[in-house]
Design a binder for these strands. Sequence first.
RNA 1: GGACGGGUGGGUGAGUGGCUAAAACCAGCAGACUGUAAAUCUGCCGCUCCUUGCGGGCUACGAAGGUUCGAAUCCUUCCCCGUCCA
Length: 346
Amino acid sequence: MPVGTQATVKGLRNEALEELGAEIILANTYHLYLRPGHELVHRMGGLHKFMSWDRAILTDSGGFQVFSLSELRKIADEGVRFRSHIDGSEHLLTPEKAAEIQLALGSDIAMVLDECIETPAPRDKTESALKRTTQWARRARKYFLEQQECLGDLKQWQFGIVQGATFADLRRESAHQLLEIDFPGYAVGGLAVGEPHEVTCEMTAEVTALLPKERLRYLMGVGKPEQIAEYVALGIDMMDCVLPTRAARHACLYTSQGRVLIKNARYAQDQNPVDPNCTCSVCCRYSRAYLRHLFATGEFTAAVLATHHNVHFYLDIMRQIREAIEFGKLAKFSSEMRARYAAGPA
RNA sequence: GGACGGGUGGGUGAGUGGCUAAAACCAGCAGACUGUAAAUCUGCCGCUCCUUGCGGGCUACGAAGGUUCGAAUCCUUCCCCGUCCA
């Protein structure tokens, strides 16, 4: 899932996303609540209409902002009190409020508010964050079901989020508690935020072992190209990551041959496409030398083209994974990807 | 011809006796980025040597001399550039 925090995937028009085959994108509750405001979006006919995107949208709850904006918020059992990073105003985000905002936005999948903490984290801190996340999930679910009752047939799905940092038993406990609450889909949160990749995999495996295969299992905020197939092999169905879009803006291109840091002087006269094996419209038309020049001169087309390529590359990885699964070759594909990226920049 | 002002590292531009191989910014080179406060952030950026150290040597603030223990900073002469006056 390409990430479009502010109701846009940075650097791409929706036409491009459609052409690239994106079926679902992410948007963010906290950010859209602050600006332009969920009520405004609701009045404009909902997020899909507002941003002119009729494919699926998943809205993150603001739980990640508990982690990333840690200096601007205070957590209590009631919810999270944020000081706006835009104008300093204070806002209380409760599990109910986060659900309400997402209902107003009208996303297809809403996430419950969770407390995402850094890893590694001490056990007592993890336990209290986990306890709170479960309580919040319960409250969010209750609110959501009441609204559903009250408003009739709601198409939106609500997902719970497993926490527990790097403690296997706490991860299992979290999963069990969420299963008890009963969600149509489950996410694994609070990973890839500091711990080694092997630990990310271990924790993911602990959780997917407990979550039902018939329901969607979503690993939040991952990953690097070479890690994606591994997560799928562990039972993950959905992922989102800012890496393809952010790295693109920072001149890092992902290719079939590894990373290409396109600003490097070595590409100044390179007439080859970014990735000779890529079929995206950027690789079909432009050279490495030209892309490097666009970055060197600070043209925003640089970011546009790079983002287009990277998102194509990521979505193509997913297409290849589906194909590999059909042919029973997922493990082989996964190890090939790891080998390709082991060497570092191409 | 005269009166002022000014010449600093690839660029812009601080510095007006020692803490200055010389601020800051830009350019250049390299790196990081994982539910986006990110078109962001970090490191290097005169040459050279080694035992790679808050190490040694050399060169450097228009040029050449001088004063001083010590000069980008003070003095002298010269050369450039800008503005104004004739």
